[in-house]
Amino acid sequence: MNIGTIVVIFIIVLLLALVVVYLVKQKRAGRCASCPYYNNCGKSSQCDDEGLR
């Protein structure tokens, strides 16, 4: 496996890890990861309390 392949694989794995971290953070913040309203959904008081806005 050449260095170019290793670098590209590393970047993809890193991006996937970032996606997982992002989704976990969203979940912990009480937001629905796939809701386009995010803090506009009417349940944002929770996000405000946690200083996430």
Partner: peptide, 8 residues
């Protein structure tokens, strides 16, 4: 827009 706030 989205079903989630729609349901709420």
């Amino acid at each position: 827009g989205c079903g989630v706030p729609g349901i709420m």
